[in-house]
Each structure stands twice: as C-alpha cells, then as structure tokens.
Amino acid sequence: MSTYKAFILPVLLSVLCGLPTFAAAETLSIIDAPANSTTGIPRPGRGMTMQQVEAAFGSPRQKMAPVGEPPITRWVYEQYTVHFEHDRVIHSAVHHQMQKP
C-alpha cells in the first residue's frame, strides 16, 4: 500500500501542477484582412480559361512555369494569385498584407 501512495502522490502533483499550462490560451484576431470569398477583391472564378482570365483581368505580373502532373500553373497579379490546372482556373487567392503593429 505504501508503494502505491509513493507512486500516486508524485503523479498526482505533476498533473495538478501542469494544469495551469493547459488552461492558458491566446486568441488570434485577424482584422481588416482581405477575404478569400466572392465578396472580396474581384478575381477570376473557377473554370475560367487562361484566355478568359487574361481578357478579363489583363496580363499578370508574373507567369510561373507549370509544375507536376497534372500541370499546375500560377499567374501572379498585384493583389492575388491564380492557380490553373491545365488551362482552367482551379483557385485564386488574395495576397496577405502584413499589418504594422
């Protein structure tokens, strides 16, 4: 019985002492970040062709070479990047702007 108490007491104390570290948490709040939604910055929609994107939004600042199979190509515009699979838009994402504290 004394061996049991000698084992349980240190374990119980270490668990109780460690609880405050689990209870502490931080809240991260991102304010005024551009939304990657249809209500955010206007950008190409899924399914558009490369020709349609260039006609509607102009030439990108940079055209990245295709990578992988199927080939994924990125076009970088001022405020967003467009991702293509073959010649069709699969995703477009607004660039994150770092805020000064």
Rank of each mutant, 00 (worst) to 15 (best):
F84H: 02
T38M: 14
L19F: 13
T39W: 07
E69Y: 14
P60L: 06
V76C: 03
S37W: 11
G45R: 15
L12V: 15
M64Q: 08
W75P: 05
P20H: 03
P42Q: 05
M50R: 09
R43F: 02
L19A: 11
R74D: 00
R46K: 15
Y77K: 06
G40A: 12
A24W: 08
V15F: 10
A35Y: 11
Q52P: 04
I41A: 01
P34Q: 08
F22D: 01
V67L: 08
F84E: 04
R61Y: 09
K5G: 01
G47M: 07
L9S: 03
T73D: 00
F22P: 00
H95C: 07
S2V: 15
P34G: 09
T39F: 05
T73I: 07
Y77H: 02
G68R: 02
P20Y: 07
T49C: 07
L16I: 13
L9N: 10
E78C: 01
Q79V: 01
K5Y: 08
G45Q: 15
I8D: 03
T39K: 10
P60I: 04
P70A: 06
G47F: 03
H96E: 12
D32H: 11
Y77I: 04
A35F: 13
V11P: 00
E85L: 05
V15L: 15
P34M: 11
H95E: 13
R74P: 00
W75C: 03
E78T: 10
A24Y: 10
I41W: 06
Q52V: 08
T3K: 09
A93G: 10
L28K: 15
M50G: 00
K63H: 04
E85F: 01
T38D: 10
R88D: 05
R43P: 08
Y77G: 00
E78H: 03
G68L: 09
Q99A: 15
A93S: 11
Y77C: 00
R74A: 02
P70F: 06
F22C: 09
A35D: 10
V82A: 05
I30V: 12
M64H: 09
T3G: 01
M48E: 09
I31K: 13
T27I: 15
S92F: 01
G45N: 13
P60D: 03
